[in-house]
Design a protein around this nucleic acid. Structure first.
Lengths: 148, 148
DNA sequence: GCTAAAAGAATTGATATCAACATAATGGAG
DNA sequence: CTCCATTATGTTGATATCAATTCTTTTAGC
């Protein structure tokens, strides 16, 4: 077995072309950059927008619920809330019915920020779907949902 | 317009259900956790595996090329190489033909690590595709590739 | 009620991500 | 040959990500 054949024991090209993990990371990075830029005038990132949106409810969710909805580690959520709380966009309060749990609620400023950014999401996402005209966006969403 | 209607001006549910950025982030997080765990016995993460794989070439790539292939910011790549270099899995060397550029090459230890981890990728990815039997994985890849 | 297991969340440490800025080398205009 | 725009990369600071650990509270068994 030659040196190059030994190296070929790793199907490098096959992995690169087929790995769904890599494909998902690449798409996630590209979309995050794109929406981060769109939301920059509002002082929030794409992830913070999704998080604000997840907390925009009459019946507040707990940390565990929000983390599950975003398919995110609970400790990551704890970290992600800090910049939002520092900006006064949300607050967390102990749940009186279960004092281990914390309910997450948007402040008035948080709702205002979300209202301001939502039209930009709508415009940017519509532009994205136009660019993906050749792609079945519904099937794409279904696949991503199945993975998460 | 009542307060609750004003709040409803933000189509929270529509955004949550349709945002491709959120769907991609969730899938990326879930897959990263899954493959991170699979690769843990080898002391590398899923991202490091993809990076090692991208550097496994006869003709070394430059930083810019690798960053573009992974749809990753160049400065992120700089940071990601540090733990790999510290582990002795890769080296970077100034390109004699263009001394601004650096060529990235796997060390013998890096190739060995990649060879060790590749079968785990194969097994784990096959398991993933089985779980996604109801999903057209090829179409999913095509969609993710179009986004990146 | 007491005690142990379980659940919810925070902290710590390591890596990942990117914008803004800075540095060094190349290449072209003149 | 000199100057300067361009290219390739590095550095810094802020946020994002998760495992491991710890703390508190709740719940189930007894």
């Amino acid at each position: 077995m030659s040196k190059s054949e030994s190296s070929a024991a790793v199907p490098t090209r096959h992995i690169h072309d087929n790995c769904l993990c890599l494909h998902a990371q690449r798409a996630a990075r590209a979309l995050a950059r794109r929406f981060d830029e769109a939301f920059r005038p509002f002082g929030i990132t794409s992830g913070q927008f999704s998080l604000l949106n997840a907390m925009n409810r009459e019946e507040p969710r707990s940390m565990g619920e929000v983390a599950a909805i975003l398919a995110m580690d609970r400790t990551t959520l704890t970290a992600n809330l800090k910049p939002l709380e520092r900006q006064g966009l949300m607050k967390s309060a102990v749940d009186p019915n279960d004092r281990r749990s914390r309910k997450l609620v948007l402040t008035a400023a948080g709702k205002k920020r979300l209202r301001a950014a939502a039209p930009v999401w709508k415009r940017e996402h519509a532009a994205l779907e136009r660019e993906l005209a050749a792609i079945d966006a519904g099937a794409l969403r279904a696949g991503l949902r199945a993975i998460a």
